[in-house]
Amino acid sequence: MEFVFLGTGCPVVSTERYGPAQVVLAGDAKVLVDCGSGVTQRLLAAGVPGRDLDALLLTHLHSDHLVDLFQLIVSSWHQGRDRPLPVYGPPGTRRYVEGLMALWDPELTQRIAHEKRPSTAALEIDVTEIAAGQVLSFGGLAVAVVEVDHKPVRHAFGFVFEAGGKRLALSGDTRYCPALIKAARGADLLVHEVFVHREMPVVEGVRSAETVANVAGYHTLSSEVGKIAAEAGVACLALTHFVPPAADRDKLLDEVRADYAGPILLGEDLMRVDLSRRRVSHAGAVMGLGAPAGRSP
């Protein structure tokens, strides 16, 4: 099983960290999780064009996690996709997708009539609304749906992926969440969001003290995420959804290291983690994670 960070950012615009998105590869299965800004470019750079995806999973319906859905649909069609895109998401996903496609219907109708492409099946979206406790299956890849705490967002999920004897937990957007810790216990990799509160000062006309407190209140603080990984007993922790995107990497690593002694990855766009071979690759560099403490290689 392989995990690829496509976008490690947040709603704050960054040319280094695109919007939240990641893809999980296991055998022939290719599953995209979330489709933030720039996802189609990152998919192409990762060698997994939208044409080839088996499914899209949505953690929740915040704009930064699904803003490029229509771009994904259209670009996949232009790449020659010949089947509908299965989309799995929380309650409200069907209404969102139907509204999105209705909004763009005049443009699509014109394109279909004029461009005469061999198939329009890629423009048919197969929506399944999911609930906590469900287990989805994509070939040999099993995906357990975990409810996380992103209130006031009513429905928000994390996912636990399992294939080839490896387990990978993805937090989605959440504050400290016992249900996620339980589901992730003993995982080979926990990919978790992080809010670096010390680097989000009050800025007049941009964010007030109340803004900072409220945003921090439904995310996981950088002072908490190492404790979560330690409590879950995971073999490796990787951070993503950096708020702010340009957070000081050295200070963040030191902060998390104080609570978690295992390997820590600060995710970067297009970084790949191969769980089977315990390798991390990014920008031409390759690193072996080695055997986690107390486990055989």
Rank of each mutant, 00 (worst) to 15 (best):
A179W: 04
V243S: 08
V160E: 00
D259G: 13
V146G: 05
L180C: 08
G205Y: 11
A142E: 13
Q134F: 02
L190N: 03
I112F: 06
L72W: 05
V145Q: 01
T15M: 09
K166M: 12
V153I: 11
L103H: 08
A293D: 06
A163P: 04
M287S: 08
H155E: 10
V4A: 01
H197M: 06
G133D: 11
D52G: 13
P84L: 12
H219D: 05
V13W: 03
M101T: 01
K182Y: 13
A246Q: 15
H197F: 12
G9H: 07
A216G: 13
I125N: 06
H241T: 01
E124M: 08
D68V: 09
E162H: 07
V191Q: 03
V280Y: 04
R154C: 07
E268C: 12
P263L: 03
F161V: 02
L57N: 05
S37I: 12
L53C: 07
A113K: 09
A29T: 04
I228R: 05
V148R: 00
A121C: 08
V145Y: 04
G233D: 04
E193F: 01
P263A: 08
R95G: 14
V202I: 15
P152M: 03
L56K: 05
A55M: 02
G133K: 12
A238V: 03
Q41V: 15
T211Q: 10
G233H: 02
K30R: 15
K166R: 15
E193Y: 07
T120R: 07
T174E: 08
L44A: 15
A156S: 15
L6S: 04
E224Q: 13
S76C: 04
E199H: 13
V194S: 10
G7R: 00
K151S: 13
V146I: 12
C10K: 06
L123A: 06
R94Q: 14
L239N: 11
V97K: 02
Q71H: 15
F157S: 04
A285G: 09
A45S: 15
H60K: 14
A45W: 09
Y260P: 03
M1Y: 02
T109N: 11
F242C: 10
E107V: 15
A45I: 03
T220F: 01
T220H: 07
L103G: 10
V4I: 12
R94M: 09
V215L: 14
P91F: 11
H241N: 05
G186F: 09
G288A: 12
G92W: 08
V212F: 07
I130Y: 01
G50V: 11
S276K: 12
A142C: 14
P49M: 07
G205M: 11
M287T: 10
L44G: 14
G27M: 10
Y218C: 13
V225I: 15
E162I: 00
A187R: 01
P152V: 03
D82T: 11
Q22W: 00
A261K: 08
D274I: 01
V67I: 15
A229G: 09
T240K: 12
V12L: 12
V48I: 11
L170P: 00
G92I: 12
A230D: 10
H241E: 14
V127P: 05
S223P: 06
L6C: 10
S14M: 01
V97E: 10
P152R: 03
V146L: 04
